[in-house]
Design a protein around this nucleic acid. Sequence first.
DNA 1: TTCGGTTTGTTCTCCCGTTCACAAACTCCT
DNA 2: AGGAGTTTGTGAACGGGAGAACAAACCGAA
Lengths: 226, 226
Amino acid sequence: METRALTARTSTESTRDIPEATVARLPVYLRALTTLSEAGTGTCSSEELASAAGVNSAKLRKDLSYLGSYGTRGVGYDVDYLRYQIAREIGVTQDWPVVIVGIGNLGHALANYSGFRSRGFRVVALLDADPERHEEVVAGVDVRPFDDLEQIVKDHGVAIGVIATPALAAQDVADRMVASGISSILNFAPAVLSVPAGVDVRKVDLSIELQILAYHEQRKTHGATA
Amino acid sequence: METRALTARTSTESTRDIPEATVARLPVYLRALTTLSEAGTGTCSSEELASAAGVNSAKLRKDLSYLGSYGTRGVGYDVDYLRYQIAREIGVTQDWPVVIVGIGNLGHALANYSGFRSRGFRVVALLDADPERHEEVVAGVDVRPFDDLEQIVKDHGVAIGVIATPALAAQDVADRMVASGISSILNFAPAVLSVPAGVDVRKVDLSIELQILAYHEQRKTHGATA
DNA sequence: TTCGGTTTGTTCTCCCGTTCACAAACTCCT
DNA sequence: AGGAGTTTGTGAACGGGAGAACAAACCGAA
C-alpha cells in the first residue's frame, strides 16, 4: 500500500511489475519451499505448495506466473529451482545490511531473531540514544550511540532500517534515517511516519492486530449488542 | 482475510457488517484520536484526523460511516465521543484476558509491551514448555508450565492466545489452544497454522516484512537486472 | 507414434476496496 | 431570517485482486 507505480521498466525480461499482493506472498512461498526442500522433496505440485503455504492453488499459480514459467506441465515445480527463482526475485540471494534503532525489549528480541540472518539480512548495528545501553552487547553486536547512524549507513551501505523506539521518538529517527540515505523502513513504533516520496515504510503494530482479533471475538461471543 | 461472512445479524441497529479493510483501520483511528485527545483537542475534521492517521480523508469518512453518523456537518467530530464509539465498536472498552505461549526473546518483549495493557488487553498468563523458565517472573507475571493452559483459559475466560514459540511447536500450541476454548490466535511463529472454522488467526511475520522491503529496495537501486 | 492422465499457465468473471464528487446539513455573520 | 462558508455522509465510477474453469503442454505406456 502507498506504493506508487514505479516507472515502467525497459528491461528485456523479468520485472513485469508484480502486483503488490503477490509480492507480499512470495516470502511465504519461499519459506514453504525451504521447508519442503529440507524435508527432501525434490518436486511438488501447485496443490502441494499451496497447501504448505496456506493459500489457494489457483492463486499460487497465478502468482508464480508473474515471475515466469518455472514449472513443468504434468509434473509440477522443481523445489530448489523455484526456490532460487523466488529468492532472486525478492532479492534475498544477496545480503542486506540492516540497522536496528531502539534497543528496548523489542529491539533485543529483533536483534536476537535468527530469522533475519537466515533469510538474507545481516544486523550490522544496534543504536540507542540512551548512553546507559552503550555498554551492552546484544547478539554479538555492541550497542552504539544513535549519532553514529550516518557513519554506519555510509560504511556498510545500509538501505534498510528498523525502528523499535517509543512512539515519540519514531518520527525523529525516521527523519535521521532518511537523511542518512536509508530508503526502506520497518516501523514497530505505534506512530504514523511521514517520509518523502521514494522511501518505503512498512508498519508492524502488535496491539492493532490484537484489536482486530478482539473485534471479531466480540461478534462471536455475544452475537449482537446483547 | 480468511474470515467467512458471519451469519447476518438480526440486531436492530449497529453491526452493518463492517468491511474487513475498515476494521483493520479502526485501531489506527483510535490511536490517532487518543493522541489528539491527550493534546487537548476537542473537535477535529475528517481532514485532520485522516492526516493524523495517515489515510485519505474520503476513506476515513466512509469508514466512519459504517459505524453510524457520529460527526456534525460543517463542524467535524467530537474527539472523545468518536473515540468512545470506535472503542466500543472494536470491543476494547472491556478488558480482554490474553495468554502468551513461548517466553523466549519475543515472548519477553510482548509480555513487557505496555501497549497491550493500555489498550484493553491484560496478560493473565505466560506459558512455556521449558521447565527452566518456570522460575522466571516476567513483567510481574510468573512463567508457568504449558500444561496449565486449559486451567488458565477456564479460570480467566481467555478467548485470545498469542503464540511466540519456534515454528515447529506452533501447530501443537495452536491445537491445544483451540481445544482449550481459545478462538482467536495471534501467531508470531513463522509457520502456517491450520485451525477449524470459527477460529480466527492473524499472523505477524517479522522477516516477511523485511523481505517485502528488500524486493522494492532491489528495484529502486539497480533498476533492472543490471 | 498415439492416447490417456496429469498439471501448469491464463482467460474471464465477480467482488471488494478506493476515490471522486456532490448533495445535505450545520454554523456563523449580517 | 437569510446567505455564505464549511464539513459530513454517500452515490457512483474505477481499479485490482480472488477464484473458477479451461486450453496448452508434458509424461509415460502401449
